[in-house]
Design a protein around this nucleic acid. Structure first.
Lengths: 361, 361
DNA sequence: CTGTTAGCGCTTTCAC
DNA sequence: GTGAAAGCGCTAACAG
């Protein structure tokens, strides 16, 4: 049987509240040095562990953070989440665990109608704070429910415009595109084309906007409208689009590609270019590529620059340190809005030469 | 403010215990149909949600499962866990959530000495059951602590020999090797070599044992001792080993490779063979490969068969349905030992021909 | 400095 | 059929 405060108190002949006060070193509690030692010692020796539920009931603090993934497997983000786990939960559990917090993970699919009954997402008795992760609009809907329940939260996504006061976290997609554009321009390219996701979500719009703004600023002229494409969601549409670009006269064809998509965009681009014997790379006779993608997935033939796959986990760590912990300690965090710029790193093919990376798993 | 049982009771003019009894339809509670309806209706309308902590305190059941990842990032499995998240947690949270359970995730590094103080891993007040995941020996050490605390558990790994009564779950590595051997033999290969992890862990031994047993049984003779190698942990050691095999007279060289390793083994093998212009595949002039690996990672040049990367998530789902839920319902589960055989699927290169898979992320 | 006390919201037993 | 009451282990306010 687990040992309780009461047992320690009786064992020592002091009061329960004294023991509680000492063990949590609550201020306003004055004990003789001797008693303090005895209490601490007894607690250790008897193997005392606070009863989490009792503490939560009495104090109203659960020392638990809920990570709520909202969405369904049949939606793009949900599918991605389940099929390509990101390490976000692992990193959060580790980080919060060190600070004495537990991480509660749950999935939640809001009803289609949009009415989330109170307490459905989370109950204040289960967490001090909820992290809401998923597709942006669903996150927003869910957060409204949490607000109604009075549960503090951190939301994933761009919610600045409608809810500037929400603590929120997201990649800085515009800065990512700017970094990509800079990289490609550094290769001397001037005819940049954008190939991104076909999604009506804020991040996709930000990617395009980042591409356009950076191009205009760094090259002096805005990108050609037909050099901005959202065909990068599948192999087929990507290949079709790239074919169209390759149909242009040679001196008008893109000489640099900025990717705002996923694996299908990278592969589709590379495969289509390869059919014309064009390789991606920094060389004079090559065309450049950079953008959002998984740097540790190999390129097929050429090389480029991409943001590394671990960046979601990095994003989570930043969130934990810069938003969650401050919010839990009820200090005002520096800023409720966290925008994260991951590092652009080389993405290569594993051809015989150069040698492949040293994987050791 | 959250609504409580008491409020409902007062609102309706009945007693708190009646409300509680009806809402949990406890047997032994007899109510008039009318009151039952009124209670249920009021609870719905007022948006009643049970207070988890209070319930846990009073009943001793938390309706929470702890997923405890034991290990450190600097150990192979820990590194793997953090860098290649597997979807196990996502799947469990989803599955258990549907059944009304919460998933609590924590990481725990047992002290080097081996003495885990009581309650350090988990406290009965936080979970009804703990899943212990990680490197086998550490799992074992941790489970002993849970046993001492009286917390039911499910362990990952092979613990049959020392603890046959432990509920436990692991891939059936021997069956995986058998399936791999069968596949390669079906291509007409007879000189099979094994390339696996250099790890002194049960799974690695089982892989070798599975390879040897299947080879002997299906080909009638045991494998050559020098055709069993644990050099597959890194690119370099893999390449060195494969070079050695390629140094044999042509009619003695392996014509089929069974992999019991990770990406480094697959890539190292393929790269080394490629230097000699050998491709992996089912053809008469090729050599075959099959084994443990990530079927959705592309091959570099050839083709083979591998177990799909989602198999850990599948393993978790099986565990949830076949072990966790039965254990929680206090029925005896069919068997406390779950061995899972994932499906062997083709693993290909994304050369121009054949066309690459249709990724749509 | 230290002890008493009143809950927190729920389950559970028992009495009517 | 229903209600009263005890108590789970802890916190926090207050009295000494």
């Amino acid at each position: 049987m687990a040992v309780t405060l009461k047992q320690i108190a009786e064992h020592l002949g002091v009061s329960q509240s004294l023991v509680s006060g000492v063990l949590n070193d609550r201020d306003g509690v004055w004990v003789s040095e001797e008693n303090r030692r005895r209490i601490i010692r007894a607690a250790r020796e008897l193997g005392y562990r606070p009863h989490a539920a009792a503490r939560a009931l009495a104090s109203g603090k659960t020392h638990t953070i809920a990570f709520v993934f909202v969405g369904r497997r049949d939606l793009p983000y949900g599918r991605y989440f389940f099929e390509h786990p990101t390490g976000v939960i692992e990193v959060l559990a580790d980080l919060l665990g060190r600070k004495g917090y537990d991480l509660l993970v749950r999935t939640y699919s809001p009803p289609a109608g949009g009415d989330i009954p109170p307490g459905a997402v989370a109950h204040p008795s289960t967490c001090d704070l909820a992290v809401v992760w998923g597709e942006e609009r669903v996150v927003e809907q869910t957060v409204h429910a949490l607000e109604a329940d009075g549960i503090p939260f951190v939301a994933k996504g761009y919610h600045e415009e409608s809810h500037p006061h929400w603590p929120q976290v997201e990649f800085d997609h515009e800065a990512m595109m700017r970094a990509s554009v800079e990289t490609v321009i550094a290769h001397g390219r001037t005819r940049l084309a954008y190939l991104g996701f076909d999604r009506d979500e804020a991040f996709a719009h930000r990617l395009i906007q980042g591409f356009s703004a950076a191009t205009e600023q760094l090259l002096g002229t805005p990108p050609r409208p037909d050099f901005i494409s959202s065909a990068g969601s599948t192999h087929d549409s990507t290949r079709e689009q790239v074919r169209r670009w390759l149909g242009l006269p040679e001196d008008q064809r893109p000489d640099g590609y900025i990717i705002g998509g996923g694996a299908a965009a990278w592969e589709g681009l590379e495969l289509t270019l390869a059919e014309d014997d064009v390789r991606l790379g920094p060389g004079r006779d090559q065309v450049s590529v950079a953008g959002q993608g998984n740097a540790s997935d190999p390129m097929l033939f050429g090389e480029g620059h991409a943001f590394h796959s671990v960046s979601l986990a990095e994003l989570a760590r930043e969130m934990g340190e810069r938003l969650l912990l401050p919010l839990l300690h009820a200090d005002d965090p520096d800023t409720p809005v966290l925008r994260f710029l991951p590092r652009l790193t080389p993405k290569r093919s594993w051809r015989l030469d150069p040698a492949p990376p040293r994987k050791t798993d």
